[in-house]
Design a protein around this nucleic acid. Structure first.
Lengths: 134, 134
DNA sequence: CCGTATCCGATCCGATACTG
DNA sequence: CAGTATCGGATCGGATACGG
């Protein structure tokens, strides 16, 4: 992607940072520590290697992800969240994820949440109750 | 936009919520209270009425924005942030905006920040200093 | 295992014209 | 002031093949 030099509003940058189908998912996958390319590809259902590399490159350009290459064979690379900016972004994504969960609860998509291990049944019950009050 | 019923991961929804060039900007414009359509159109530089209505409609579908229509002439409509889900999203956007500001500081785009009144000169100095430490 | 290049359909988004 | 409809270029993203 081409980084523009004429941003006038931070939210324009925000848009560039988070746009693209996979960015938030990639960041979220990296939140618990560094991962290799193949690892990410395996864990993110449906992504192609091309998209993964493309999006990682953009995340690096914005200073949200770092890349570390290791010499020798077998080839090894580690992608990780940058400690300040990337970590900050994870905060935002975590909040947004809650908004997504909230939406899924409202639409009755509780099965998906439970079966994917995102929430336990108890947690779902609790949240549904909260939602109906708030 | 078409709301899918087969979301399996909350982050997929998050992506649908925030994708599009204008969504975060529209939400941010609404953060201090309800606004009419013309008002938004005036305040968001470069947006067309078509895009504005389209994106507002999507934000409404996701429960982030509410619309209130008033009878009679002159026609009047108010768009506002929903108290729970919309407000939560503003939290995330605020964090992301900080990430954007951080990026602009790193790239030396301080003029834009100051001239648009996003930050004062003093604040910029302070943040630049913080960034070089953190 | 890691990364690059190309081709091509899908979608996004801006311009513009029109209605209540 | 608020909202709808259409058209066309730009961009996105998936498939696929190739190279280090």
């Amino acid at each position: 992607m081409k980084i523009r030099d004429d941003y006038t509003c931070p939210l324009e940058i925000v848009h560039d940072i988070i746009k693209g189908k996979w960015k938030t998912i990639i960041l979220y996958q990296l939140k618990d520590g560094p991962k290799g390319l193949a690892e990410l590809e395996r864990e993110i259902a449906g992504i192609t290697q091309k998209m993964l590399l493309e999006q990682l490159k953009e995340l690096i350009e914005f200073g949200l992800v770092e890349k570390k290459s290791f010499e020798g064979y077998p080839l090894r690379v580690e992608y990780s969240i940058t400690p300040r900016r990337g970590r900050k972004m994870i905060e935002a994504i975590t909040i947004m994820q809650k908004v997504g969960v909230d939406y899924m609860l409202e639409k009755g998509m509780t099965d998906a949440l439970i079966s994917k291990g995102i929430l336990s049944e108890d947690e779902v019950c609790k949240l549904v109750k909260e939602a109906s009050n708030g």
